[in-house]
Amino acid sequence: MTVMRDTVVKALAKIQVQSNEKGLIPEYEVLVNLLPVSLLNAFSERIMAAAPPERKAEVEAGLVRAAYECGYHTGCGIITSDIFSEVVMPMVTEDEKDILRGAFAAFTAWGWAKSGIVQLKEAEKMIVRAFDYYEADSGGQGLRGFMLRGLCQAFFDLAYAEPYPDGMDTYVCHQTKGIEVGDAYGEFVVVKK
């Protein structure tokens, strides 16, 4: 058996995070927050618009980096969590491949992106397609999947780089297509740095 995506999505989508008496959400070895997507998109666009042309790459890199570190640390917490062990691990027969499949099912279930792996060359290359993602609504010009770029890179690092926490920045992700620029889906290609 390999990971049955629909089963995982259904099981994980039911999970709701809840704050404790301090108004904090400690889950997956991190503090989780829940923020309006309108806020996140507006922030990305406003900060990109404010940057002069020679600094736009720096701002873009900063947005991707925030998602990457979030994905790397939180991702490790997710794939070692009780719920992942309970829902995904019993279906894992192909090690890293199946863990990645489970991780992208979690992406979908938790509303980051309705996405999945379409090509995987172990430890070398991964192509992910996303048919819905909130950054596609940001209204900016050009490719806007900053968060997804960071998350795809993070999960490939977790799967194939040195074990956590020593595998950071082994791979890099480029966005090659985007719903926000008129394509039918967003496409994200992860390769060795």
Binding site: V17, V30, V32, L34, A66, E69, C70, H73, W110
Partner: peptide
């Protein structure tokens, strides 16, 4: 259809303290 989540009619998404710390630093 999309698996997007909402709270009281407004789209919301989870991130972690790493994300907000780095956005604040940015």
């Amino acid at each position: 259809t999309t698996n997007r989540h909402s709270l009281n009619g407004h789209g919301v998404v989870m991130h972690s303290h790493h994300y907000l710390a780095l956005i604040t630093k940015l």
